[in-house]
Design a protein around this nucleic acid. Structure first.
Lengths: 341, 341
DNA sequence: CTGTTAGCGCGTTCAC
DNA sequence: GTGAACGCGCTAACAG
């Protein structure tokens, strides 16, 4: 039998469904013999009581919140996730947090459809992923409130966003103020699979800072590749072989910055004495390695996003806009005045 | 009205429930007027269709797997989580992953009760937390299969475990082989809130290695404190003020090892020239900073644990035991022969 | 102690 | 096109 119900169990045990239900909830007193009997039949038939039927009957609706993100590998996503989790546990409610990682960009739409179709969640927290207008409508029509934690700076009410352009500017400006004039940019390919524009935006900030200091852009200094420490490492080695290598590097993420630093050190050069390196994000790792970076309050963005969503879930229609503290330059030990070595 | 149903909507719109259901699923053709009417009533009443009722009716049961862990802050937990996630997505099934973080040790039992009581999950993956016999029985009786990713080495069928004692031995032995004789241990308090014995076990391994080399234990060299980089940092500073400071440190986790290294460097000493440091876990961070450590295949443990659970879920009764590769010493750049500086 | 029955809220045939 | 009735699997209240 595919999926035995309590009726099947009852029949096989020669009792009524009520009795089966009782032993299942070991509530009211049941005679030891019948209990024994029922249990053995349950075992035999491999009976598993239906979650949904039970919930429908008891009326206890546990609600689910979905967190959708591209991957849980980069620390930046984990920190946001932790923020969400914290906001959830602070509000002593019984929401469950379901984790959706979009393993393939192509599957995003499909996953979204499944979520809507099976009405798995009551609310959705979408991180970084690009949601098309069509998808937004889908969610709206299904009555699933959603909040977007975006890398794109928008005035969206139901979203938390970061001004990446400004952040890129801050990082680059810091290097320029230190007297550096040969400043490289190490970032993600502008067009990655997910269509995430983060690197593009931070690069824009880089450009505007250079422009402000009247420094022409050197194409050799702009290195893009797949996100990650390894690629950054490789790109940096290339930078160092240039006839006129940069004296400072702006890496678009802390992880990439770490890759840069390693490459520099392996080449026998020192950070920051010979080459300054600045990252972006200020993930925990950065504290550990003493990295200069731009703090974007990742954990807090997850926290605030979750709060917004909870608002929407508790009192439909009312959303309190929440704002992230401004980006901050965090100076540690990987950047230094040019020519001071 | 608290929770309007389709009946309420139907009544208010002057139609039958069938019609309401149809516009909800925009399936069969409904006259534009009625559709309009129904939609406006839905809006008005703030109607939201019940997830469970829908699932019960349609028969689409999405199953949930719960991942229960003490926190998602330390990278070691995140890596295990990633492994679980990967195993799940590799098996094109429609299981949802629900994240439970036990924010307070006292709440563990309560959370477990809620999970069982509301039958939220179909299977449970428990990481590191200690589950009492009572709690095991609770899960068994509720028919919820579970797998435990334990720090304790047991022969349990439904679990994946790490031989921490052996790992502690490996780390310490490595330092001793390099000629170090003053070897410190930096770890967690033996009795933490969660009753997690990891540090205790690794310490046992430390002791057995020392014994093998006939080195008496120096109480000053054993530093315990709250898990985390900060504490390790502080403890290391203390170590360095000893009249006869250690020449090598075994930190029970990579994060703590990083704290140690920072403290050493801040004191004007070098790693590994002056002091060798070895960690434990081999989280991603360790690659980035070139830390010598003991690899315990964290991601894979999550992966295998999830596979076991899926086994149990798919074909009840049958569990294929899975085994983690043995612990490995990973030598990078933070340990060195004693006296070589 | 135990069998029977009426909902839980929604989807889905059926006739109309 | 649309309304009424039945069933999804289980719990709970009611008789026995």
């Amino acid at each position: 039998m595919a999926n035995p119900t309590i009726y099947d169990v009852a029949k096989a045990a020669g009792v009524g469904v009520g009795t089966v239900s009782r032993v299942l909830n070991n509530s009211t007193r049941v005679s030891p013999e019948t209990q024994e009997k029922v249990l053995s039949v349950i075992q035999e038939l491999g009976f598993r009581r239906s979650k949904v039927a039970r919930q429908l009957s008891t009326g206890v609706q546990h609600r689910n919140i979905g967190a959708m993100l591209p991957y849980i590998t980069p620390p930046s996503f984990v920190e946001r996730l932790r923020g969400m989790q914290m906001a959830l546990s602070h509000q002593d409610n019984d929401f469950n947090l379901i984790l959706y990682t979009v393993s393939e960009p192509d599957r995003q739409h499909e996953q979204l459809l499944t979520i809507v179709d099976q009405s798995t969640v009551d609310g959705l927290l979408i991180t970084t992923l690009n949601i098309s207008d069509e998808e937004r409508d889908l969610l709206k029509q299904a009555g699933i409130p959603f909040v977007i934690l975006s890398d794109v700076f928008t005035g969206d009410t139901n979203g938390i966003s970061t001004d990446n352009v400004h952040g890129g500017y801050l990082a680059t400006q810091h290097l320029l103020q230190l007297g550096h004039r040969r400043v490289a940019y190490v970032g993600d390919e502008l067009t990655n699979n997910y269509g995430i524009p983060t690197s593009d935006l931070r690069y824009k900030g880089y450009l505007s800072a250079l422009a402000e200091y009247d420094i022409p852009v050197n194409a050799d200094y702009v290195c893009l590749g797949m996100h990650g420490e390894e690629t950054a490492h490789r790109l940096t080695r290339q930078l160092l072989t240039l006839p006129e290598p940069p004296t400072a590097i702006f890496a678009m993420s802390d992880i990439q910055a770490v890759g840069c630093i390693q490459a520099v050190r392996e080449s026998g050069l020192r950070v920051p004495e010979d080459i300054s390196v600045i990252g972006f994000d200020d993930v925990q790792l950065s504290r550990y390695v003493g990295l200069t970076t731009v703090r974007q309050h990742l954990e807090q963005s997850g926290y605030l996003g979750m709060q917004m969503l909870l608002d929407m879930l508790m009192t439909p229609g009312k959303v309190t806009p929440r704002h992230l503290p401004p980006l901050e330059l965090v100076v540690r030990n990987t950047t230094q005045q040019y020519g001071l070595a």
